[in-house]
């Protein structure tokens, strides 16, 4: 296995789960599938449509999102919104993310480029 393939594997492991946090945070303002996809990739999250669309339905079944069909415009779209419970979960996940970031930063203060 080349070093690039190894790195890609580890990066994928690390990024797994970030899309959930990002979606729950972004959808505090209601949004539909494609708009969320655009917002996330513009914000620098690598996410594919075929994982994001099913993920939204899964989060809805877990009670973290609610959905509603909007038929006001020419094309009907399903809008998702974060529930209070989803907000709580997102808060807890972000706290954990911050804790991990601090913990990694504290690991080895003498590493070049990460001096305190």
């Amino acid at each position: 296995m080349t070093i690039d393939a190894t790195l890609a594997g580890h990066l994928q492991e690390l990024r797994r789960g970030t899309v959930v946090v990002a979606s729950l945070v972004v959808l505090r303002t209601p949004g539909y599938g494609y708009s969320l996809l655009e917002t996330l990739s513009a914000a620098g999250f690598e996410v594919e449509a075929n994982t994001l669309y099913p993920l939204l339905r899964r989060l809805e079944s877990q009670g973290l999102l609610v959905s509603e069909w909007n038929t006001d415009e020419a094309r009907p779209r399903k809008f998702y919104r974060t529930t209070p419970r989803g907000d709580d979960v997102a808060g807890a996940l972000r706290t954990e993310w911050t804790r991990l970031d601090t913990a990694i930063g504290d690991l080895n203060p003498t590493t070049p480029g990460r001096q305190k």
């Binding site: 494609y34 708009s35 669309y53 094309r75 779209r77 399903k78």
Partner: peptide
Amino acid sequence: DIDRELRASIEDAVEA
């Protein structure tokens, strides 16, 4: 429901 949503999402992407 998925049929409707998936078609809308595909149409959104095509339009973009």
